[in-house]
Design a protein around this nucleic acid. Structure first.
Lengths: 181, 181
DNA sequence: GTCTATAATTTGATAGAC
DNA sequence: GTCTATCAAATTATAGAC
C-alpha cells in the first residue's frame, strides 16, 4: 500500500515541473518548492545540490516520460496522419491535464539565459522527439516514398506547430485553439 | 545630427526588449538595464516606476512595430502563400537580426506567472497578428471562397508554426531549421 | 533525511540631494 | 533627470545539530 506514496525526491520533481511549466525556470525558487511539499529549503538542497541540477533532472524526466509514452516508433501507425495525431494527442493531454504548456517549450523560450546543463536537456527533448517522428514517419505509407529530408521537414513542422499552438492557446486562455491546428 | 541619439527612455526599452527575448521577463533586473546603458537603477525607475510597467511598454512597442511593418492588410498580396511568406519573413528577420526569438513568444511561455498588465500586452500581440492575417488572407484568391473559420484556422496555424519554429531553431542553435517550415 | 540558522548576493523600489 | 544611499524582501547555497 505504501508504494503509492511518492518520496520527497519525486514530490520535489513533480512540483518543480509544474512550477517551471507555469512560470519558467527563473520563476520559481527552492523555497517555493519547499513550502509546496511541506519541508524546508535545506531539505530540497539535500536532494538536489543546485537549482541547475534540479532543472536538468526535471527536463530529463519529462523527456523520458514523453518518449516512453510514444513508445517504439517501429510500432507506430502506418498512416502518417495517425502518427502526427499521436504526437498531437500527447501535447494536447499535457495541456488539458494541468492547463500547462510543454516544459521544454518554456525552457526553449528562456534558453539563452539558462544554465548549460538545463539547456542541454531541453535541447535533447527536441532532438529525441524529432528523431522519433522521423523514424515513425518513414515507416508510413506516405513516408516510404519520401526522401529523408522531406520526412524530417514534416517532423519539424509538426513539433513547431504543437509547441507554438500550446503557447497561443495558453495566453489566449482558450484550449480549443489548439484543436484547430 | 543629434536626432539620431536615442533618449534614455528608448535605450531602456531597447535593452529591456533584448534581455527579455534572451532570458525572459524573470531573467533581467533593473540593475542589468542600468548597467547596460550606463546609468543607475534609480534612473530606470524614474522612467518606468515598476518592472511590470516597463514590461508592458516593451511588449506594446514590440507589437506596434510588428504590425506597423506588416502594414495595411488591404494592401497585402492577393496570393495566400505570399501573405504567409510576408509574416514568415518578419519572424525570420527578428531571428537573424539579433539571434533572438519573438518577444511575445517568450512572454507567452511565462504568461501564467506574469504581472497582469504584461500578460495582457502579450495576449494583444497574438490577437492583433491573427486578426491581421485573417484580414489579409480573406482578400486572397484562396481566401475569397473560404468560410471565415477556415481562414482563421490558417492564420492560427501560421502563427503557431512560426512561434514554435523560432523556439526550436534557437535551442537547437540552427537558424536554418526555421527555413524548413 | 530534515531541521535551524545564517551567509552572501540580488532584487524591486523609495527618499532626498544635486 | 540622474545621482547616492538605503530598505525590506527574496534568492541560492552551506554548516552543523538532531
Amino acid at each position: 500500500m505504501a508504494e503509492n506514496v511518492a518520496g520527497t525526491e519525486d514530490r520535489i520533481l513533480d512540483l518543480a515541473e509544474l512550477l517551471i511549466r507555469k512560470n519558467g525556470y527563473n520563476g520559481f525558487s527552492f523555497r517555493d518548492i519547499a513550502a509546496g511539499i511541506g519541508v524546508k529549503s535545506a531539505s530540497v538542497h539535500y536532494h538536489f545540490p543546485t537549482k541547475a541540477a534540479l532543472g536538468a533532472r526535471v527536463a530529463k524526466r519529462y523527456t523520458d516520460r514523453f518518449l516512453d509514452t510514444l513508445g517504439d516508433p517501429d510500432k507506430a501507425p502506418e498512416d502518417a496522419n495517425a502518427v502526427i495525431d499521436k504526437v498531437r494527442a500527447l501535447f494536447r493531454s499535457a495541456m488539458l491535464e494541468d492547463g500547462r504548456v510543454c516544459l521544454c517549450g518554456v525552457l526553449a523560450a528562456e534558453s539563452a539565459g539558462l544554465p548549460d546543463e538545463v539547456a542541454a536537456e531541453a535541447k535533447a527533448f527536441f532532438t529525441r522527439l524529432t528523431n522519433w517522428l522521423c523514424a515513425a514517419l518513414s515507416r508510413t505509407t506516405w513516408g516510404k516514398d519520401q526522401p529523408a529530408e522531406a520526412v524530417r521537414t514534416q517532423a519539424l513542422r509538426a513539433v513547431a506547430l504543437f509547441e507554438g499552438g500550446l503557447l497561443i492557446a495558453r495566453i489566449q486562455n482558450d484550449t480549443d485553439l489548439f484543436d484547430l491546428l
